[in-house]
Write a protein that binds this DNA or RNA. Structure first.
Lengths: 134, 134
DNA sequence: AAAAAATTGAGAATAATTCCTATTTTCGTT
DNA sequence: AACGAAAATAGGAATTATTCTCAATTTTTT
């Protein structure tokens, strides 16, 4: 039975769960080292990614390798394909846009970025193909 | 009069504005080189940042140096301070949360990340202090 | 056209993250 | 409680993304 246990993984989770400060991987590593002096940085990165993949943690405003730019500054949202990383535009319903603007105004924020996760059409096709072959 | 002009800056903007593909800085650089073979990568990074700063472009789902993690996986949003980069939690109104979930379901998305931009309390205090001194 | 200011190119430097692989740990089986 | 296969780790090298430095060039002002 695959239990996925290791002392490192548990420590990393405990450290992350002990704070609400949205720490970086580096910070988690430093904290972990206080209790396990030669835990490797690679392990921290690997296990944090695993926690995210398994839904036990989230990555705030995920980066996808490099920054992406867009000259169309009118407000619109994005969808990042969780399979291939492609970024697509996503245009919100009027209802959603109003709710977002209302929230921002109410709380004194100056702007927002909304990024949905999903699977792009290309990858969806491939997945269906793969499923059909099994 | 500061016109902020340079042939490189204009080319970089034209290249960015010519696509809807949310390119990386690297991609913009490659495209620019087709027309200006020894434009420097540093210039592209610098000028893209300038375009973002001046509102002529946006950075999709902004990264702030390093990835940030959070073990509290219940849905909540974030606010990134545009002055110091601090990440705070932001809890949406019921209205907004419903609108977001509705949109995601409607479009077949699997999740979303909403990050507001703003100025955290700390920096707001400092700004006010700075203003008062002028 | 000269002086001043702003911007650039090129590569070095830094930062963040991933890769490599020999070694160690885990865990079901004996 | 030892065995062995599979999974995970440490540590450092490698890679990737981005920023920095500064002399040279371009643009703007005079």
């Amino acid at each position: 039975m695959k239990s996925n246990y290791s002392a490192q993984r548990e420590l990393i989770y405990r450290v992350l769960a002990s704070t609400t400060s949205h720490p970086t991987a580096e910070w988690v590593w430093e904290k972990c080292r206080e209790q396990m002096p030669n835990i490797s940085k690679a392990t921290v990165y690997r296990d944090l990614a695993g926690l995210v993949a398994s839904g036990r943690a989230i990555e705030v405003s995920g980066t996808f390798g490099s920054s992406r730019f867009d000259a169309r500054v009118q407000q619109h949202n994005h969808m990042v394909c969780s399979v291939c990383g492609a970024v697509e535009d996503s245009f919100p319903s009027a209802e959603l846009r109003l709710a977002l603007e209302h929230e921002a105004q109410e709380k004194g924020y100056t702007g927002y970025g909304l990024t949905f996760g999903g699977v792009c059409e290309n990858c969806r096709k491939k997945q269906n193909g793969a499923l059909a072959q099994q």
